[in-house]
């Protein structure tokens, strides 16, 4: 491994990852489906849940009922947004997807990956939970339903998203603030 060549560049990126998440978004913000800029963290003082999805990801698809059930259960505790980071997705395509899967949550397009970078997610479906102070409390998988791409349990035995929402609501920390999910990589991750 050519560690000798790139130590400086590596250090820079690692340093960037360790910095506390900033509230300020990069220049191209996320857009709602009508094309307006939206900063989900500034919409209210409640905790915020961002759910990152790919339209061509069967794992994201299978989670649709679970995401809807959790968002209904905690509708008074947090604001939920579906986030589509794929640059090729159009608003029309996203609307069709929402309709097919019966979603009634607000959806955002994150083509410049400002929310992706803020949340540090890598996979769909993954979620990011922000506390009242807009700090990132948790990012990663919804639960441990999937072991790997070819094996799903009959039922999950851990529930990281729900745990994180309750922790954020109570202002408490979570046991693990980052648990990678199983699913499809977000395209063009940097």
């Amino acid at each position: 491994m050519p560690w000798g060549k790139f130590p400086l560049r590596l250090l820079v990126l690692v340093a960037a990852l360790c910095a506390p998440s900033s509230v300020a978004l990069s220049q191209e913000a996320a857009l709602d489906l009508e094309g307006h800029s939206v900063n989900p963290l500034k919409e209210s003082n409640k905790p915020v849940v961002l759910v990152f999805l790919r339209r061509d990801c069967p794992v994201s698809a299978r989670y649709a009922p679970v995401i809807q059930q959790i968002s209904k259960k905690y509708e008074n505790d947090a604001n939920f947004y579906l986030v589509y980071p794929d640059q090729a997705d159009t608003a029309q395509q996203i609307r069709s997807y929402l309709s097919a899967y019966g979603y009634s949550l607000p959806a955002l397009r994150d083509r410049a990956h400002s929310l992706v970078k803020l949340s540090r997610v890598q996979i769909t479906p993954e979620v990011a939970v922000f506390g009242r102070n807009h700090q990132l409390v948790y990012e990663g998988r919804i639960d441990n339903w999937y072991v790997d791409l070819s094996r799903a349990r009959s039922a999950p035995t851990t529930h990281e998203l729900e745990d994180a929402i309750r922790a954020a609501t109570a202002g408490k920390p979570v046991a693990h603030n980052e648990v990678r999910g199983v699913g499809c990589y977000i395209s063009d991750l940097n």
Partner: peptide, 16 residues
């Protein structure tokens, strides 16, 4: 493989 937060030695190397 994304097996949660426990990355084995092999996987850490791949991640790097």
């Amino acid at each position: 493989l994304h097996l949660g937060s426990q990355l084995t030695l092999n996987q850490r190397a791949v991640f790097a």
